[in-house]
Design a protein around this nucleic acid. Structure first.
Lengths: 152, 152
DNA sequence: GCTGAAAATTAAGCACG
DNA sequence: CGTGCTTAATTTTCAGC
């Protein structure tokens, strides 16, 4: 799909606030409401916009403690990898899982209430998974930036 | 704010799909449209829901290459820390910045087009920032899970 | 705090340049 | 592809419980 400058601006606006009405967007872009509507539908159909979500403040729901957990598997057979990935993806404390290059195999972003909850999580949930070799945790002291906006 | 089971269910639904109508939500929760409407407004006013955003597929906008970049500052004076944080937060390639414990001071999540774009980013943007000591990059081979949902 | 209906706004569809 | 009008749907408000 070819996206022009207006599409890029539109994507920027919708990534900041998806509740803006087409009328407001039209005003900012210098287009008609229908033109905005059609551009949005085109971006949705093309899969550029994958979904619309509400973002929740972690501290308001007791999930303000963030840690990155790096993981090594004991063995990298296809079965081990598949099993580990599907199991770890099920854990609600684990927001993100990336298979990565380097010393460790995976990086997890984990969000829980506090350090005690993290300890509980490690003991009862994570290290209960199959095929885990070693782990290393890095704790967030302060979130400096946390954006979902892909500037295009 | 006290959130009951219905609020938690509602937050779960809105975090998955913010475009659901109050009518649909009402059906799923066994409430009236107005009751849903008032609960949502309450959650917004209380700041539990911080914003509504459109999520964009990285591969559709040439940003499918993700790297984690760990950074050490040369010196941890207050001025250095403040200056670095404000500068790095301005970079659109850097989606997330966390001040962390451990060997490195910061973890950055960087999203760019490809490895070449990452090299460009490192040379021209990141290492151009003041006070950076050393960096270490970890590259994402495959994203396994990438959620914004805080299960409450 | 919930319900149901009315009023206001917005989204979706249509004819046309 | 764009605009402007028309209709459908949804959000928001309100009286009453």
């Amino acid at each position: 799909m070819n996206t022009d400058t207006l599409d890029r601006k539109l994507l920027g606006l919708l990534q900041e606030d998806a509740k803006k009405t087409n009328k407001e967007l039209a005003g900012k872009l210098g287009l008609s409401v229908t033109a905005v509507y059609e551009r949005i539908k085109k971006l949705e159909r093309a899969g550029v916009i994958s979904k619309y979500v509400a973002l929740v403040k972690p501290e308001k729901v007791d999930r303000a403690f963030t840690a990155f957990c790096q993981i090594k598997l004991v063995q990298h057979t296809k079965n081990n990898v598949t099993a580990f990935e599907s199991q770890v993806a099920k854990l609600s404390e684990v927001l993100e899982v990336f298979h990565v290059s380097g010393e460790y195999d995976y990086i997890l972003k984990v969000m829980v209430r506090d350090m005690e909850a993290y300890r509980e999580f490690m003991l009862n949930k994570l290290t209960a998974l199959d095929h885990i070799g070693s782990t290393q945790s890095t704790f967030v002291i302060s979130p400096v930036k946390n954006s979902t906006v892909l500037k295009v």
